[in-house]
């Protein structure tokens, strides 16, 4: 699997993403600056977490108009896999590659802790390394992770299995007290209709090495490497 990590001014998880991808594939991903307009030929594009453009106007709004994003959109249309984590998820919604929007957290606080996620759909390239119904521990660190979409969109996501991760308890029960940000339907991650673009607020790259205190994020990168080759 050849991968690229897009670096925006204000990205701060780009190097963690690089390490996670390198561990899964054995080769260094391309680090692509947001002003670049030629994207290398890759199987996976990762939009990392951070505070691109200082979250000016709305989280991800400025980054979604970066020169490189036109290329990312074209690649996504061709079927290249795109993974957006945290700020990357916000950029994907602002760019129109995923529906809905990430709003200010319900309690207006920055939430930084490990959460439990229920893997709802293990049929995507991103979740091939997990089992459906599996509960994994992944950290969140965000101020604007409260997923919102209109009812029709939510129903469509639900009906087509496009809600990939939901916040849950350690035992896998989905309830408001385990939802860190107030997201509609406890949504932590969704995929697009074709299944090649995934956005999620939690950070799998931050728990992808036992040295970091856990490796529940590793199967995502290993699964992607297996499905997308090498």
């Amino acid at each position: 699997m050849r991968a690229a990590v897009i670096v925006f001014p204000g990205s701060n998880c780009d190097r963690d993403m690089r390490v996670a991808l390198r561990q899964a594939t054995g080769r260094d991903p391309h680090m692509v600056w947001h002003r670049d307009t030629d994207l290398p030929d890759v199987d996976l594009i990762a939009l990392p977490g951070g505070f691109s453009y200082g979250d000016y106007l709305r989280c991800g709004a400025m980054a979604s108009h970066s020169p490189v994003m036109a290329e990312v959109k074209r690649a996504a249309e061709r079927g290249v896999h795109v993974l957006g984590v945290c700020n990357g998820f916000q950029v994907l919604t602002e760019a129109g590659l995923l529906p809905g929007v990430l709003m200010r957290n319900r309690d207006l606080r920055f939430v930084c802790r490990d959460v439990w996620l229920l893997v709802e759909n293990a049929e995507t390239a991103f979740t091939d390394g997990y089992e459906a119904g599996e509960v994994i521990r992944i950290p969140v660190a965000h101020h604007d992770g409260n997923y919102f979409a209109d009812e029709l969109t939510l129903r469509r996501l639900e009906d087509r299995g496009r809600i990939v991760f939901r916040y849950c308890s350690e035992m896998g029960a989905v309830a408001p007290e385990d939802n860190p940000n107030g997201s509609c339907q406890h949504i932590a991650g969704i995929v697009n209709e074709k299944g090649n673009v995934l956005g999620m607020m939690p950070h799998p790259e931050r728990l992808a090495d036992p040295l970091l205190g856990g490796a529940d994020g590793t199967p995502m990168f290993a699964g992607l490497a297996k499905i997308l080759g090498g």
Binding site: L57, R58, A61, H65, T93, E94, P99, G100, V101, M103, F148, A149, D150
Partner: peptide, 8 residues
């Protein structure tokens, strides 16, 4: 195109 996110 930029100033408002018309979803919300």
């Amino acid at each position: 195109r930029l100033l408002a996110n018309t979803v919300i």
